[in-house]
Design a protein around this nucleic acid. Sequence first.
RNA 1: CGGGCCGUAGUGUAACGGCUAACAUGCCUGUUUUGGGUACAGGUGACUCCGGGUUCGAAUCCCGGCGGCCCGACCA
Length: 425
Amino acid sequence: MFQSKLFSKTRREDPKDEVSKNAKLLIKAGFIHKEIAGVYSFLPLGLRVLNKIKKIVREEMNVLGALELNLTTLQNSSLYEKTNRWSDEEVDIWFKTELKTGGELGLGFSHEEAIVELMKKHINSYKDLPRAVYQIQTKFRNEERAKNGILRGREFLMKDLYSFHATEGELDDFYDKVKGAYERIFERIGIGDLTYTTFASGGIFSKYSHEFQTLCEAGEDLVYLAEEKKIAINKEVLTDETLSELGLVTEELVEKKSVEVGNIFKLGTRFSEPLNLLYKDEKGKMLPAVMGCYGFGLTRAMGVIVEITSDEKGLVWPRSVAPFDVHLIILDKETGSLKGNHSSNETTKSALEIYNELIAAGKEVLCDDRGLSAGEKLADADLLGLPYRLIVSDRAIKEGKFELTERVTGETEYLSETELFNKFR
RNA sequence: CGGGCCGUAGUGUAACGGCUAACAUGCCUGUUUUGGGUACAGGUGACUCCGGGUUCGAAUCCCGGCGGCCCGACCA
């Protein structure tokens, strides 16, 4: 893609209405746009990052054998009355609205009820179990106070997976597999080292749930780490009892701030019972299905990546989620001479060749063909934070070399064309 | 939901109750420059968030609304 065609512009100054690092940088670099407090639009660059994360999440969901679907945003109030989750006393984050013909609706904040209602039509027998379905969908939560940019919005993108089982043992097995899948997701999106599987309060059905907490100064949660064992405990369940159960002692724990990027729950029959999701077992007995639910905040994960990887110059994307692989920067005496994908200038011509070859090699390339000064282009490149910056300049062309700089380390190599392509193979 | 701060060109800031609301940046024209936001010249751009009030006079003071941020509470 040519940068001259990209409508989003970078800004020189921090937006005055943002304090969080993630929002400041993402806005400055033109990845997102704030519509309302806690409500952000995703511009082309930001959307590309989100899509990269989505792809990784989908791949890991597929490994679990889960099928993707898409439930509605508008939710029927009467369904939630059955599980006692419609009243404001029970759930205070609903965005509620109503039909012109009467009747209340809510914008979905989570979809346990909806998925159970749907699966009732498709699960009748033990032969229909187990089942796992997921969706990647915008959730709405009427937070009293949105904060920290895209870490806690009123509207955000979430992956929610639900599983249905005949027995608790079956749920336990699946639950452990999901835990593994989550660990792979965090590894793959580049925050695995800082993400801890954390014991948290479990709700009614199980003693604990597991949160995936990424250590981060911008975090709102407090976790206690046993670093060597790679175990963490959320402050909310930190008791002597918990410690002895997990075989830990207070002395080995370190307190850290963190962001909850995922949370997995054993729901048991919390929803299947009141909503009558029943199946017949081998003996013809009607039993409620045993369920699990597994959430992952995509937009929040993106915010966390920014919080922990960016530096004073700007964003620093891990390769797996970067909007492009390579930032190809043309520095020549006639920049702006690039018209309709051809040019008479040797440097630009050479850059275009490289551009086309990289694309042919399957790389995603952002080519800075704008008629700006070198300094501006370099500063923008740092701000956008693509993994590699490839400079094609008059100087380099004379020497027959391309200059490749890795954003995260700042290390530069001077490569021949062959070496360059070996690098990207 | 308690407490605090704030709202001025696209962006970031300034302006004692008093001159045509200033500066930087951006944007447009031209010349210049091409390895770290190049330089110069000319130009463009604001009903000072909205509504009321006080005053000879309001960006500035008062009331109400809307919007934004922070601290705390909350976050199934």
